[in-house]
Computed example of a mutant assay.
Amino acid sequence: MKYLYKLSFLVALASLLTLGSCSEDENEPPKSDAELIGSGIAWKFSAVTAAGIDASSYIDDCYLDNLLTFNYQPPTNVGVVDSGATKCDDSAPQTTDFTWEYDESTKVLSVDTEVIEIPGAVGEIKVVSVSATQLVLSQSVSLPGFGTQEIVLTLVH
């Protein structure tokens, strides 16, 4: 009888430990791309390439420390650009608000302002990939002497 009592106690203890290790996060559905982009955590510059070649030296330093925060708040998603420690224009405000939309089916990110200023940029900003820690964007850019090139911008948290 003692053996049966110990066995049932061990089964109950194991059940409690197993159930106690579950968290609510495991039950949440995966986040959409729009929710990942609009996490409310600032994105910062990591890399930029043109035709697969590092192009960060062609971007003014005052843009490289900018922070982009996208807030997912349907129906109107808002965001903030923070100019960082190095401002391009000292008289410009430190932060600028913008609105944005993301089309899950086409993977196109639309913003109502020049959030990411790329000279010669034309067309849509495409989301190449997004995760909880990295956002990769691409856009076609017309470069004098080089024609139209695909610029790939990587942002990280």
Rank of each mutant, 00 (worst) to 15 (best):
35 E>R: 11
32 S>Q: 07
108 V>M: 02
34 A>N: 04
124 E>W: 04
114 E>V: 11
29 P>N: 11
48 V>L: 14
97 D>K: 05
27 N>G: 10
22 C>F: 15
82 D>E: 01
6 K>F: 15
138 S>D: 13
25 D>H: 07
124 E>R: 11
71 N>K: 05
31 K>H: 06
4 L>M: 07
85 A>D: 15
79 G>K: 06
71 N>Q: 06
88 C>H: 09
21 S>M: 03
106 T>G: 09
140 S>K: 02
81 V>A: 08
27 N>K: 12
86 T>I: 14
122 V>D: 10
17 L>I: 09
40 G>D: 10
75 P>G: 12
148 T>G: 01
127 V>C: 04
38 G>S: 04
49 T>E: 08
26 E>H: 00
130 V>P: 11
152 V>L: 03
119 P>H: 02
42 A>R: 04
95 T>W: 10
50 A>E: 04
135 L>P: 14
72 Y>S: 01
134 Q>S: 15
94 Q>D: 14
107 K>Q: 14
94 Q>T: 14
6 K>E: 10
97 D>L: 07
142 S>N: 15
124 E>L: 11
86 T>S: 14
11 V>S: 06
93 P>H: 12
151 I>C: 04
57 S>Q: 12
83 S>N: 13
88 C>E: 11
121 A>H: 10
40 G>H: 09
80 V>N: 02
85 A>Y: 09
6 K>P: 00
81 V>P: 01
48 V>P: 02
83 S>W: 00
